[in-house]
């Protein structure tokens, strides 16, 4: 099995080593190893059932691996619960938009900011001024983020009332608000129109330029080729190959497993 080949720049921020996870008799992830470099924009691709989403869940702590190790920022986070992993700056989004529906767009952002002292019972009940002071800073930052994503006008709408595309943008804006070090996006482009794909792609690129390491699970190979500087290909729960998209196109194993006849014509959805 090919070992992960790190790109030149940066040190690894995330390393998976022989990670295994079974559901009943199915080994959804079967000895998956790869590493992600700090500051990179990596795509995790592979056919349906390759185990991509399971890997995301394992890394983010939503599932516990049966074997193997996951190291994030030099610390072993194998089996650590998700809220603690998030607390260390590893944030993931979900395949379907999962906004906090009965909270406003602005609240969706403000609530995810990390390290709010008003989340302790004592401060919440007895130090309202401290809470308001912190909230004011957070609200201003949230409005700046929303503005960047073109959502400032929707700030007081319930997130559940937004259109599908807007929900995708809120998802990304919310992730930015939480100031991640490593952001894992699970199919951020699923079910959005081509114009919005470009917009989302641009946003994701700019996150990376601003120092956030991004891993995205994605089926749209055109956008992957355009914005990602590194690709990890998975099939049958294992890492099949890693590298840049143009090299992978000439890797016959990858082509057989995933790209197939679409080799010459990039997928446009």
């Amino acid at each position: 099995m090919p070992e992960a080949t790190p790109v030149d720049r940066g040190t690894p921020i995330l390393q998976l080593d022989q990670v295994v996870r079974s559901f009943g008799g199915v080994r959804a992830v079967d000895g998956c190893s790869f590493s992600i470099d700090r500051g990179s924009l990596t795509a995790l691709i592979g056919p349906n059932g390759a185990g991509k989403s399971t890997v995301v869940n394992l890394v983010a702590g939503a599932l516990k691996p049966d074997a193997g190790s996951i190291v994030y920022g030099g610390v072993d986070i194998t089996g650590v619960v998700s809220h603690r992993i998030a607390g260390r700056g590893l944030i993931r989004t979900f395949q379907l938009s999962r906004e906090f529906a009965r909270m406003t767009v602005l609240e969706n952002l403000v609530v995810v900011a990390r390290g709010q002292s008003g989340e302790s019972l004592f401060n919440a009940l007895l130090r309202p001024r401290l809470c308001r002071r912190e909230d004011r800073v957070l609200v201003e930052r949230a409005i700046d983020v929303l503005d960047r994503f073109g959502l400032a006008a929707q700030r007081d709408m319930y997130a559940g009332d937004l259109s599908g595309g807007q929900k995708r943008l809120v998802e990304l804006a919310r992730a930015v608000m939480s100031e991640p070090e490593l952001l894992i996006l699970d199919e951020p482009m699923a079910g959005v129109n081509p114009a919005l794909i470009d917009l989302l792609g641009g946003h994701i690129e700019s996150l990376c330029r601003n120092g956030i390491t991004v891993v995205m699970v994605e089926h749209n190979l055109e956008i992957v080729e355009r914005i990602c500087d590194h690709v990890v290909v998975m099939a049958l729960g294992r890492t099949l190959a890693t590298g840049v998209m143009s090299d992978l196109r000439s890797n016959s194993e990858v082509v057989r497993a995933y790209l197939g006849e679409r080799l010459d014509e990039p997928t446009v959805r």
């Binding site: 983010a60 939503a62 619960v81 998700s82 809220h83 603690r84 998030a86 607390g87 944030i91 993931r92 989004t93 979900f94 999962r98 906004e99 906090f100 529906a101 009965r102 909270m103 609530v111 995810v112 990390r114 919310r174 939480s178």
Partner: peptide, 14 residues
């Protein structure tokens, strides 16, 4: 309220 709306997402945000 975030937990009420979606417990997994709330956990994923720490």
């Amino acid at each position: 309220r975030a937990v009420r709306e979606d417990i997994d997402v709330a956990e994923a945000y720490g």
